[in-house]
Amino acid sequence: MWVPLSPAEWEVLTLSLRVGLMAVALTLPIALFAAYALARWSFPGKALVNGIVHLPLVLPPVVTGYLLLITFGPQAPLGRVLEAVGLPIAFRWTGAAVAAGVMALPLMVRAIRLSLEAVDPRLEQAAATLGASRAAVFVTVTLPMALPGVIAGTILGFAKALGEFGATITFVSNIPGETRTLPLAIYSFLQIPGGEGAAARLVIFAVVLSMGALLVSEWIAARAARRVAGA
């Protein structure tokens, strides 16, 4: 069964990668901000914010997808606004990226928050006395020091986005070439009599892709950790 990828398989793979990368790109700034706020600030309603960030982790994915649908769907006000500015996401691959990003958010926030909390605030104080603004402290000290955790969290989020199923199928449906990512394609093949072989090939891709992401993340994180260790 080891034959070159068919165009249909390529489509599934590239779409999955596109969705996964877009999901991470959309979520990373939000995750960084949320992680920093939760790690370093105390503000009223912190527990509530923490709860909302973690909601996608504990809710059934179908519920998350449904909530996205009634927020960003074609009938919803926010969906109409996005449509009006030329960024419709309902039933588009961008919508799949949003669904995957939302599902990845809690995992990314948790990993990044832990690494931010491990950054010695005394180094940030030293930076401030040397003339660094808050933003400069974050960019030149906090973020580089927390980089291993940020990378690990990002790869974790990417893997989660690749594998996202429930929220995606609920929010943007299962449209070949638009929203049919790897897990949706595997599911679809399994619904067709005789589709097991095609599903098995995709399963192998999924394993290779996930394993590859994991190894790359370990490698990058180890390099970053060495850098931060300062030896």
Binding site: Q125, G131, T140, V141, A229, G230
Partner: peptide
């Protein structure tokens, strides 16, 4: 950041991810 007081702490508090040269010039860059 605007007080311009060169603070030397008990534990040097050098930035571990930067070289000595980058550490020395950190404040000048900012």
């Amino acid at each position: 950041q605007v007080r311009r007081i060169g603070y030397v702490f008990q534990e040097a508090r050098l930035f571990p991810h930067l070289s000595v040269r980058q550490n020395l010039l950190y404040g000048a860059r900012r």
